[in-house]
Amino acid sequence: MSIHKQKNLRMLAVALLAMGVTMSAAQADDDRDERYGWRLGEKSAGKYGGENRGKPLQPAQTNAKFQKECSDCHIAYAPGLLPAESWRKVMAGLDKHFGTDASLDAQDNKEITAFLVNNASNRWSAPTAPLKITETAWFKRKHDAREINPAVWKNPLVKSPANCAACHPQAERGDFSERNIKMPK
């Protein structure tokens, strides 16, 4: 093997290692306070009173109909953000969907409901089923005044706490990791 080739191989190895390190960091920071809570014994009680979003938020295999139909008016909120019963209720009430008619034909509704229910939060143990992601305990804790300056919510670029992508540009892909947060100026 020539010196030149060896050098190339070494560079490749360094690059691969570096990628590995960044990836594990990306997976880690989202759950930083979870691990902290676990040490305090919160895990047994159910983090966020049992109202925790799922992991992963978005399955590896998404559904084309869900992606298309649910992103006409807003981002397609990842199924893991709510428990199965919430999605059943949302999908059964699409004709009165937060003040607008978002109804689908029966076949599309059935397919999207199945996708949402099958990939709903797998860490939700409370008997609750809120319609709004912003009403879940995990959301409220992650966005309380300790975490987010209340002035942020008044920024016209944010407009509403339902507008995830205002600060989480990768929200559509189910990526809400802290390192990818970008607060609008």
Partner: peptide, 10 residues
């Protein structure tokens, strides 16, 4: 022209 959803701003 481009429109804008009255509720979500999309």
């Amino acid at each position: 022209a481009l429109g804008k959803h009255a509720k979500t701003g999309k």
